[in-house]
Simulated assay, not measured.
Amino acid sequence: MSIDYILEVYEPGDKRAHNQYRSSTPFGAFSVGDTIKTQTQGTARIIHIGHFVSQIPGSERITHVTMIYTSID
């Protein structure tokens, strides 16, 4: 079984991720209140974290998406 990891960073007030990162290994831990630096918005504060896990029926592949929602202070 293989797992694909995707990290999506959402800018304040936007419903689509402008920063998306893919990996075959898990990303480090994030917490609400942490600051992150992205390619498009510079330094931002994490205000909400969501997860989405899916598997196509009959497939050995799992996808784990971590969605980071941010605010600019």
Rank of each mutant, 00 (worst) to 15 (best):
P26A: 08
T63I: 12
R61L: 15
Q55H: 07
F52H: 12
H51P: 03
T63L: 10
G58I: 07
G58R: 04
G58T: 07
H48E: 15
G28F: 02
T43F: 04
K37S: 08
A44Q: 05
I62W: 01
F52N: 13
T38F: 00
H51D: 14
Q39F: 11
D34G: 07
T43V: 15
I49S: 05
S54M: 07
T25C: 08
Q39S: 14
I36K: 01
F30L: 09
G58C: 09
F27D: 09
A44T: 05
I62N: 05
I49E: 03
S59E: 07
G33D: 02
I46A: 01
R45V: 14
Q39P: 03
I56R: 14
D34Y: 01
P26Q: 04
A29W: 03
S24W: 03
V53Y: 04
F30M: 04
Q41R: 11
T35S: 11
H48W: 11
P57W: 03
H51K: 12
Q41K: 11
G58D: 05
R45Q: 13
A44Y: 00
H48I: 08
T43A: 10
T38P: 00
G58K: 04
S24Q: 13
S23N: 14
G50Y: 03
Q39T: 13
F27W: 08
T63C: 07
F30Y: 11
D34N: 12
Q41F: 08
Q41V: 07
F52D: 13
V53P: 01
T40Y: 10
T25H: 09
Q55E: 13
I49Q: 02
S59N: 10
I49P: 01
I56N: 10
V32M: 06
F52Y: 10
F27P: 09
T43R: 07
T38Y: 00
F52L: 15
I46R: 03
V32W: 02
F27H: 10
F30R: 04
T63K: 05
S31V: 07
K37R: 09
S24F: 06
T40N: 11
F27S: 11
F27K: 09
F52R: 12
K37A: 05
G58Y: 01
S23H: 03
R45E: 12
H48T: 12
G33W: 02
P26F: 01
S23V: 06
F27T: 10
G50Q: 09
S59K: 06
F27L: 09
R45G: 05
I36S: 00
S54L: 05
T25V: 15
T25S: 14
Q39K: 14
